[in-house]
Design a protein around this nucleic acid. Sequence first.
RNA 1: GUCCCCGUAGCUCAGUCGGAUAGAGCGCAGGAUUCCUAAUCCUGAGGCCACUGGUUCGAAUCCAGUCGGGGACGCCA
Length: 592
Amino acid sequence: MSSILQSLEEAFQNAFSDLGFSPDLGAVRESDRPDLAPFQCNGAMAAAGQAKKQGEKVNPRDIAQSVADAVKKHDAVKSIEIGGPGFINIAPTEEALSKRARDLSGSEHLGIEQVEPRTIVVDYGGANVAKPMHVGHLRSAVIGEAIKRLYRALGHKVIGDVHMGDWGLQMGHLISELESEEPDLPYFDEDKLEDFPEDSPVTMDDLARLYPQASNAAKNDEARMERSRLATAELQAGRAGYMALLHHFIDVSVAALKVGYGDLGVEFDLWNGEACVDHLIPEMIEEFRRKNIAEDDDGALIIRVEEEDETKDVPPVMLLASSGAVLYHTTDLATLVDRKNEIDPDLIIYVVDQRQALHFEQVFRAAVKAEWYKRDQLYHAGFGTMNGKDGKPFKTREGGVLRLEDLLKIMNEAAADRLEESGIGADYEASERREIARKVGLAALKFADLQNQRLTNYVFDPERFTSFEGKTGPYLLYAAVRIKSILRRAKDEDVSPGKIKISDPKEAQLLLSLDAFGRAVASSAEKYAPHILCDHIYRVAQSFSRFYSDCPILAEDIPEEVKASRLALAELTLRQLEKGLTILGIETPERM
RNA sequence: GUCCCCGUAGCUCAGUCGGAUAGAGCGCAGGAUUCCUAAUCCUGAGGCCACUGGUUCGAAUCCAGUCGGGGACGCCA
């Protein structure tokens, strides 16, 4: 089942090919001039350019005319006209639109073309043990979740891994700080090797307090820093009490993180962290040495990854610090080994802050050098920071970071207020109102984040985030909810969806929007760019709203077959909207 | 110093493997509700696409340079 655009494109490619040109020139796209026709093909100008290079002088309009003549008889073509220097404008027939609508209606995937499945790991979330989630964690979670679902929608096997930061100096900070406060805990007895208490000596709140306390103290106190370093080294050397503590820290943190990510509607298949791959490090280092990839340098063990003829400086990968400690590069590489062993993925996508681009470039090069992966199996999908109005990373008025749960609360309350204003939810149960407010608030938050191109830093403006009009998550939900309402009413009135027949221009416009779903999903995934799908869903919602105001469905004077057709079109729209929203990680309420 | 990202309407952002008249939302000015949810729809005003030069029939888009903003650059993660 191919889209209208695809079937037109096929005809154009054949036409160009038959004229002796490259079939690529037959690319059809949505028109820049929708006032002229919905689709256009610009290949004639390029073809004339090609011919000119070979010494032939041809008028692009003549080529366009030949192509148009060849394509004219295609049964999806209603009109075909040549404009300007050789643009070919194409309008499809109502029959083609109607048929496409019925095809989409009957298809499980709603136009998303299923592909040869690959195994893909999406590494996102990246929360740290012992640190509460804040707005800085939002983008990775929201974008990563969308990318994961995008690839699943295409038919791939996708594994989401939270990849927690739970290894390294931060653990040394926590251990030594806890020792300062409670030196008598059994974990600090060097001779004790087993039988540590099962219950954690600390809560999440304790951890959230201990970490900044230690980190600040160490900043200005070299001796304090040395204690953290020592604790880190001993932990990594496997000291029993410290390992037991580490597992408490991780358990306590994971429980809290599961709640936090759950509130965001983000789910991971793997809750692995850096500590999980620690045991692979000695052998990995041995392999690097054996392959003559790693070398000693100034007491540290490094891998040089700069390439010849490179203008930029790429510093080496640091495998071991001169203290012998394991670093960020090391655990990331060990994670790559682990994934190779356990999953053997075709592709790994890292959804991590763009500021870490160089880090990933280094790690990827080392992994390629070791011949574990090909370069195109590893991709860093970086993203820009969420800034305040001053252009600096967002801070609260007090200057601190905004906790994620507080942000969610703000969104929730704004949505609840809006619901109350509208007066619509007055007769709903309190629990349903709460649930609606939750979904609307979360939709606003996620859509506001996802609709930006990944790499741009964007301004987080609480006022704009909590306005629910225009190009926002709630606008999309509103369109979906209106359809649900119509469907409920149609059921009451015993009207059933029937055969779709496109006749009104607004119906045609809506169908043309729906036709583009498969393309939007594919290119969104290919470019790791959820904002492309956001744009598509928004256009569908917009087309539906126009259709809604122009084309009554259940009004008395509407003929039965038109009712049935429009109802089916509305239902199809709802299915696509909900599918798209689900991919973006947005839930739709029944009413709002 | 080297490298990366960004600069488009008053504001927030799309558009960048070259195509016709550069789009959207907010805001602003006006209009639509005897009719399926007005969190909606319609109309309008608003642009040296940072700047300079180049390539091209054609440049917001490609190339070179300049300016401005953000960021990264061996023992934190």
